[in-house]
Design a protein around this nucleic acid. Structure first.
Length: 867
RNA sequence: GCGCCCGUAGCCCAAUCGGUAGCAGGCAGGUCACUUAAAAUGACUCCAGUGCGGGUUCGAAUCCCGCCGGGCGCACCA
């Protein structure tokens, strides 16, 4: 018979990848309604596959493979988020063509990806920077334009001085830094294109509730970002010097209409449009100086919470529409022009910021709400910001805050000085970018006709090639006069193309839809295809897109639904946010320098190779600058893709961070070798899966030896456990552990087992292994003579009969403490268990003859005797 | 400041409804076997009482309260 052999992944992996590709094993079926779409967030083609990618795609691959074995028609595609600044920067630095550079990177990365043995349907690959894709990005933009959801406006926007372009709010972090370049953004006044995402704010928020397959924290992050706040707008008429109402008024937004009678001043944002018109001549100079001061501050300085609040009265006064009282108008740096109405009412008694401000400028503090059940609240520490009962509020006295808010809004609406209103923190999405390597915005500016959309049949508006990129700022396209000047599509007179390109997040807001119909040349996708495959059953990607991409994609889906292009509300049914891959990191605590692990002689006592200083050791996200990265290609070269896959899946639960550890990789490699030897041993015995009729289920349990029964229990226990780990929450780490357990049990019992049982065990092992280590499973499947591909087999079913035990160890507790075990029949009822327990030596010893006052019986588990 | 998540052996991690904390699994360590030796392999094995303090319960890693430590989000949003 065959000689024993060694597991050599390098020899088998490429061969199977080729075979699968030749056999079109991963092609998406076009018939059937039992569809399943498994999707990874597509990568930016940097040219280098890193471990984070590997983790992402391996997780999705296992999900796709299991779905296939469970009988679904599976769509598991891949594509490239291929517009973006790295290509343009490479062009500027090295003079290469961004398109060619990107295509090269894609080729390199595709090659690396294919080495992982992913079951991707490459026929559906999409690339966002290719005209056959971005043509439809432009087409969709025109849909937004047509729906009134795309518009231009002058606005204060975030300018990234490093990347030389504007950014959306979502792309600036809490410290005011660009998500890409890390540079602190500047504020600029520019005319820009926006998408009206705020029109969908309510839906985007409300529908989060239905996304039960999403991690709670992603949903909260989005809810926070959208930031709905229900309140009221109240208008304060501006009065003239004599105290009579003028035709002007200041409208404030408040969530605390109940505190209206406590207003002691009204504050405008320094940038508010009314400031100039309302400032009295005697205050004009001071106001101008103050506004200069404020505008000189960065956003960050201005919004720091601990910063003292500064303000100045502008001389005007307004009348409180509820009390008739006249109060002064101020401007202050703590009021933001962009939020609400850019104006607030100052209620020092009931708002901490107003309180601080009032103390500083000696403005009156008037209490109009008292905590329920108390008298007056002392204002030593600050404002009373909770709800309570109204006082000093005229006709609203005695109402609770909640009912007062309603009553005051009702009165305001009736009397015409206010109304209920909801505001959002969410801003419209700024999508213009002053860069070259992006999707051109398909509009033309005509002196006679204004903004004219490029007619759909003229799409794509192709990105001109051979543009000189110098990185000097300003839209590179604007310098290409021959491209810019076009006849107006409407009147034919000379007009100018829009020279900004779109935010690349637009491209990624709909790519998942295109996979359903990637070669469609008359539409971005057909309604039939998109409704057949989408929404995505399982989406997998990094948490860093919790707000950005995931919010934009949800917005797009809703708009396209309203345009009749698709028939669902949400794009991603379930979302798995995988954790980071971290590498061991050494840093010299004095110099702050990162030391590559290869330069650390003794990991148990890490020293700086130059100075000999002791190094700090920790795990951090892999990155070039920290020298803590592990190259997937190196791991695959050494151990094979299956080992890399198994390690990544086993080392940590998918949503947790994973600490890369070479020793553990080695351990996984050993496990796969054990499997190989296990099968090798079976081949020595001339066992075969050729007939594939295990027939073990037909064997009466009574005919089995104890070892065989143990083996069957292990086999079917593993089926049950792995199946369970792979549905609902994905617990790949415990699923792999179950495989190890099974292999351990097989190591123990396989040799002594009769052929049908051994065959059943081997068969099952390979089926369960297939999604995790697809090459090895296929190779062993083939070596055992089984027909076809292991990847086209149905997922195994556990036989409940195999799991049944005759006796179980019953735990005897006395007063909740474990005192011993008793072997009892597995099917014994409560009364029997109680009798057995009470009659046991354990009970006799610990109860010392007393009868228990209480007996708790948990069938199949334990009996607790309480004296 | 507000909200969410996490804390179990030296390390990574398990533990349906609250029901024997690990014959879940792995890494590292130790002993032994095989070997001339080593590697590889196999067998056995050491190690925690679940961050801390209370509470509920017959019984708490699991539920509740308060702390400590770590991570994340939001934060002058009216």
């Amino acid at each position: 018979m065959s000689e024993s052999s060694r597991y050599q992944p390098q020899a088998i992996e490429r061969q199977w990848q080729q075979r699968w590709s030749d056999d079109q094993l991963h092609q998406t079926p076009d018939a059937g309604s039992h569809t399943y779409m498994a999707l990874s967030m597509f990568p930016y083609p940097s040219g280098n596959l890193h471990m984070g990618h590997v983790r992402n795609y391996v997780i999705t691959d296992v999900i796709a493979r299991v779905a296939r074995m469970r009988g679904h028609q599976v769509l598991h595609p891949m594509g490239w988020d291929a517009f973006g600044l790295p290509a343009e920067n490479a062009a500027i630095e090295r003079g290469v063509d961004p398109g060619a550079w990107t295509d090269q990177n894609i080729a390199a990365m595709r090659e690396q990806l294919q080495r992982l043995g992913l079951s991707i349907d490459w026929d559906r690959e999409i690339t966002t920077c290719h005209a056959d894709y971005y043509r439809w990005t432009q087409w969709l933009f025109l849909q937004f334009l047509d729906a009134g959801l795309a518009y231009q406006k002058d606005a204060t926007v975030n300018w990234d001085p490093v990347d030389q372009t504007v950014l959306a709010n979502e792309q600036v972090d809490g410290e005011g830094r660009s998500w890409r370049s890390g540079a602190v953004v500047e504020k600029r006044q520019l005319r820009q294109w926006f998408l009206k995402i705020t029109a969908y704010a309510d839906q985007l928020l409300d529908d989060l509730e239905g996304l039960v397959g999403w991690p709670e924290r992603v949903r909260t992050m989005q809810a926070n970002w959208i930031g709905r706040s229900r309140g009221a707008e109240i208008s304060f008429p501006v009065v003239d010097a004599a105290g009579n109402d003028s035709d002007k008024q200041i409208t404030v937004f408040t969530t605390r209409a109940d505190t209206l009678h406590g207003v002691s001043y009204v504050v405008l944002a320094p940038e508010h449009g009314l400031v100039e018109r309302l400032t009295t001549p005697d205050q004009a100079l001071a106001v101008a100086a103050f506004r200069d001061l404020v505008s000189a501050q960065s956003e960050q300085e201005r919004t720091a919470e601990d910063k003292p609040k500064r303000g100045i009265p502008i001389g005007a006064r307004v009348r409180n529409p509820a009390s008739g009282e006249l109060v002064p108008v101020w401007i202050a740096d703590y009021v933001l022009a962009e939020y609400g109405t850019g104006a607030v009412m100052g209620v020092p008694a009931h708002d901490q910021r107003d309180f601080v401000f009032a103390r500083q400028y000696e403005l009156p503090v008037r209490q109009v709400v008292i905590p329920e059940g108390s008298d007056e609240h002392a204002f030593e520490g600050g404002a009373w910001c909770g709800d309570g009962i109204l006082i000093h509020s005229g006709r609203f006295d005695g109402l609770s805050s909640a009912s007062a808010r309603e009553a005051i809004v009702a009165a305001a609406e009736q009397e015409g000085w206010g109304r209920g209103r909801t505001t959002f923190r969410l801003r419209d999405w700024l999508i213009s970018r002053q860069r070259y390597w992006g999707c051109p915005i398909p509009v033309v500016h005509c002196d006679s006709c204004g903004v004219v959309p490029v007619p759909a049949e003229q799409l794509p508006v192709e990105l001109p090639r051979g543009v000189a990129l110098e990185g000097r700022g300003g839209s590179p396209l604007a310098q290409l006069e021959s491209w810019v000047t076009v006849p107006c599509p409407r009147c034919g007179k000379p007009a100018r193309r829009e020279t900004d390109t779109m935010d690349t997040f637009i491209c990624s807001s709909w790519y998942y839809l295109r996979y359903s119909d990637p070669h469609n040349t008359s539409l971005p996708f057909s309604r039939e295809s998109v409704d057949r495959w989408l929404p995505v059953n399982q989406y997998v990607g990094g948490i860093e897109h919790a707000i950005l991409h995931l919010l934009y994609a949800r917005f797009f889906t809703k708009v396209l639904r309203d345009r009749g292009l698709l028939g669902f509300d949400e794009p991603f049914q379930r979302l798995l946010t995988q954790g980071m891959v971290q590498g061991i990191t050494y840093r010299n605590p004095h110099s702050g320098r990162y030391i590559a692990p290869a330069d650390v002689a003794d990991p148990s006592d890490p020293r700086d190779p130059e100075s000999g200083e002791r190094l700090d050791t920790f795990y951090e996200k892999m990155s070039k600058s920290k020298h803590n990265g592990v190259d997937p290609a190196v791991v695959i070269d050494r151990y094979g893709a299956d080992t890399a896959r198994m390690f990544i899946l086993f080392k940590a639960p998918p949503e947790k961070d994973l600490e890369w550890d070479d020793a553990d990789v080695e351990g996984q490699y050993r496990f796969l070798q054990r499997l190989w030897r296990l099968v090798d041993g079976a081949l020595q015995r001339e066992l075969s899966l050729a007939g594939l009729a295990p027939g073990a289920a037909a064997l009466a349990p009574a005919d089995l030896t104890p070892g065989e029964r143990e083996l069957r229990r292990a086999v079917h226990g593993a089926i049950a456990a792995v199946s369970d780990d792979l549905q609902g929450e994905f617990q790949f780490n415990t699923a792999v552990a179950e495989l190890m357990k099974l292999s351990n049990a097989m190591g123990e019992h396989l040799e002594a087992a009769s052929p049908p049982l051994a065959v059943e065990a081997l068969h099952t092992l390979l089926l369960l292994l297939a999604p995790f280590a697809p090459h090895l499973a296929e190779e062993l499947w083939s070596r055992l003579g089984a027909p076809g591909s292991v990847h086209q087999q149905p997922w195994p079913q556990a036989d409940p009969a195999a799991l049944v035990r005759d006796t179980i160890p019953l735990v005897i507790q006395v007063k909740g403490k474990v005192r011993g075990n008793l072997e009892v029949p597995a099917d014994a009822d409560k009364a029997t268990l109680e009798r057995l327990a009470l009659g046991s030596d354990i009970a006799a010893k610990w109860l010392e003859g007393r009868a228990p006052s209480r007996v708790i019986v948990v069938p199949g588990k334990l009996v607790n005797l309480v004296p």
